[in-house]
Nucleic acid binder design. Structure first.
Length: 422
DNA sequence: TCTGGGGTCCTAGGACCC
DNA sequence: TCTGGGGTCCTAGGACCC
């Protein structure tokens, strides 16, 4: 049996962990730039606020205090997530962290009854030790465990844990779940299935295999097998990431090359830093720039370009250099840009990066670049060392100019804040 | 005025090989 | 006029996830 732990309304719950006065109130957490709603308390859901709603459309609620907004504070959420996961790691056999607020695990050698009791105890412990409410679903496959966790979250009677162990329970549950809520059925497939008369998860599970092969192909087949109790979703291999992306929307639209160059340099330096922190290097660097897709009155342009490097790199100089070379090839002066980003891919472990047959680079220069990047890494996040960056990058932090008007303190990771709280 | 960011996998089609 | 068959690899785009 697989268990899925899901933190309820995770980002909102993180904010509430240090603000018990927000319990029972409508709270939302916003995306970067205070753009869209990405997490909602039950009260906010009950008000009809949908996931992804643009924040400016919620003025009517925030102005009279009916809704309390927070800018996203990923440092806080990452830290609380790590605390939840560390409890799970101690209390389960095979923990697979699936996202910042979800994890699968198995428990060997327990009866179903003991398994359920153990999970109840976990829910209580995480709530008490970290302050985060979680739900746990238990079922023979991951897809079914996901559905079980929805039930555990939705119905108080489960007291946080829903066990879906019999065929009878499986069929009853699937019959109650709209097909659009099944893991693996997204915004394209959902409506397509509905138009063919498939309304519930059970309707899908009861289709013939040939029909699934024909209409849904491989990913859909996995979902179908799992709904029918057959394990088909494998554990994700958590080796090195295959690509790393840093991108941002701008508070205002930009047109000048020099402004885009500053932003793209920042994004590229951020990608390079992430590569170094993972001990990897990348052979390809892609830069993309986007116009504002909501402004139908303006010209639209979504170009991207990829530079293939002779060898895998992770220094700020090399990655920024490649990103700017790509930018130069796609930039047009007559357009207003709203967003840009840099992606590094074709990623190798750093040790393998140097194994190339014809390396025409200058080894002395390469060594200097590595030393300088290491210095920049030390300066990063250390206020005593100040801001250390390439001259093409922006003055100040790259997050500057991004709207973040409702941010909570770094309760758990900033010494100043910890002293203030305690 | 204001509309997020970061990933993975699959598939089809093109370019290339013999 | 007639113009093969069987592969691999890469890429772009689409679908999905959180």
């Amino acid at each position: 049996m697989y268990a899925l732990v899901d933190c309820n309304n995770f980002f909102v719950s993180c904010e509430r962990a240090f603000r018990p006065d927000l319990e029972g109130k409508a709270v939302v957490v916003l995306s970067n730039n205070d753009g869209c709603v990405v997490s909602r308390s039950n009260e906010a859901k009950a008000m009809g606020i949908k996931m992804g709603t643009p924040f400016f459309q919620l003025d009517k609620y925030t102005r009279n205090g009916l809704l309390i907004p927070f800018s996203s504070n990923y440092t806080l959420y990452g830290d609380l997530s790590a605390r939840v996961m560390s409890i799970l790691a101690e209390e389960s056999d095979h923990l697979e962290i699936y996202s910042i607020d979800e994890a699968f695990f198995t428990l060997e050698g327990l009866t179903l009854e003991d398994l359920e009791a153990h999970c109840r105890a976990l829910v209580a412990r995480i709530r008490q030790w970290v302050g985060i409410p979680v739900s746990i679903g238990i079922a023979p496959t991951k897809t079914l465990a996901k559905l079980a966790s929805h039930f555990a979250k939705k119905y108080k009677g489960y007291r946080g844990v829903c066990l879906m162990e019999t065929e009878q329970k499986r069929r009853k549950a699937l019959g109650m779940v709209p097909v659009t809520e099944v893991w693996g059925i997204g915004r394209r497939l959902g409506p397509k299935l509905q138009s063919k008369g498939i309304k519930t998860a059970l309707d899908l599970a009861d289709k013939k295999r040939d029909w699934i092969d024909e209409e849904l192909h491989k990913p859909g087949l996995c979902t179908w097998l799992e709904l029918n109790g057959e394990v088909a979703v494998e554990e994700e291999e958590h080796e090195a990431r295959k690509s790393i992306c840093t991108s941002r929307s701008f508070a205002t639209m930009l047109s000048r090359y020099e402004e885009l160059r500053e932003r793209v340099s920042d994004f590229a330096a951020s990608c390079a830093r992430k590569l170094r922190s993972e001990g990897t290097a990348a052979r390809k660097v892609t830069t993309f720039i986007w116009t504002n897709r909501f402004r139908e009155d303006l010209q639209q342009y979504y170009p991207s370009a990829t530079i293939c490097l002779p060898r895998a790199e992770n220094s700020n100089q090399e990655v920024v250099g490649a990103a700017l070379q790509a930018l130069k090839s796609i930039y047009r002066p007559d357009v207003l840009y709203k967003k840009a980003g840099v992606i590094v891919h074709d990623i190798l472990p750093q040790e393998e990066a140097s194994q190339v047959l014809f390396d025409e680079g200058d080894p002395v220069l390469r060594e200097k670049e590595a030393v300088l990047s290491a210095l920049m890494d030390r300066a990063h996040g250390d206020p005593r060392l100040g801001d250390l960056r390439l001259a093409v990058q922006r003055k100040g932090h790259y997050a500057e100019g991004i709207r973040r008007e409702h941010c909570s303190p770094l309760y758990t990771t900033s010494l100043d804040e910890i002293i203030k709280v305690y």
